[in-house]
Simulated assay, not measured.
Amino acid sequence: MQRELFNDDAYLRQAAARVLHHDERGLVLDATIFYPTGGGQPGDIGHLVLEDGRRIEVTDTRRDRGTHQIVSTLTSGGPWLVPGTPVGLELDWPRRHRHMRMHTALHLLSAAVPAGVTGGNLTDRSGRLDFDAGALRLDPAELTARLQAMIAADRPVHVRSISGDELRAQPELIRTMSVSPPLDAPIVRLIEIEGTDLQPCGGTHVARTGEIGAIRVGRIENKGARNRRVALDFLEDGP
């Protein structure tokens, strides 16, 4: 079993681990701070540090569909690491922190728009959600003002959990129309923005909305008869 340390502490930037196995797919560790691509959030990058001081770049992180293990892709030309090898993990923190800020901002956006979410993704500079908005009028300036007020309120962000059966009995918590959370799972992770939003999510988030920083709705596009795409941009590098 891998310990997914980012679930316990999204702010953890360094950690120690040991190699479980290393093959053509990549590197599997007994513990990792690197978040794997998922839920619209890109996989983390960073470095491994070997005992002799050598540094190996981690260029991507994904979850293997067959084993569900988190696999880190390493830069080409590095050494093959045998099971049991101790390594230090160093996260590209500025990039991850921007992901955390944008991901939390998208949760605020989903709370601000009273419509089902049909898709979305994010980078460390921007993000977007698609809504089944129908005839709902969406104005960029109005949405920006609502988001800025939510951010300025500096509301706490909590990680909670619920059983799949409990979530099935509360379908209003599920905002995404295209992808369903694992309703058969014994535990489903929830992200709560106090007094604002509560929904299933496996991504990494900031601890308070004030940490998101200045953001705006950059554009709203029609993507079909009912679908509206709302894009967010950072206005500054942030905290």
Rank of each mutant, 00 (worst) to 15 (best):
L5N: 08
F6K: 01
N7T: 12
D8G: 15
D8C: 11
A10Y: 02
A16T: 13
A16Q: 15
A16I: 00
A17D: 10
V19W: 06
V19L: 06
L20M: 14
L27C: 04
V28F: 01
L29F: 05
Y35C: 09
P36T: 08
Q41G: 03
P42H: 07
G43W: 00
H47V: 00
L50R: 01
R55A: 13
E57D: 14
G66F: 04
H68E: 15
P83S: 05
G84N: 09
D92L: 04
R95A: 07
R95Q: 11
H99N: 12
T104K: 08
A105R: 09
A111V: 09
V117K: 10
T118H: 03
G119A: 14
N121P: 00
T123L: 02
D124R: 02
L129E: 07
D139Y: 02
D139L: 04
L147Q: 02
A149V: 00
I151P: 09
A152C: 09
A153W: 11
D154N: 15
R155Q: 14
V159N: 04
G164D: 03
L167R: 06
A169V: 07
E172N: 12
E172C: 09
S178R: 13
P181T: 12
P181M: 11
P182H: 11
L183D: 12
D184K: 08
I191P: 04
E192M: 08
D197S: 14
P200I: 07
P200A: 01
G202C: 13
T204L: 04
T204Y: 01
H205W: 02
H205Y: 05
A207Y: 00
R208K: 10
G210F: 10
I220F: 11
G224F: 08
R226L: 04
N227S: 11
R228Q: 07
R229G: 02
F234I: 03
L235Q: 13
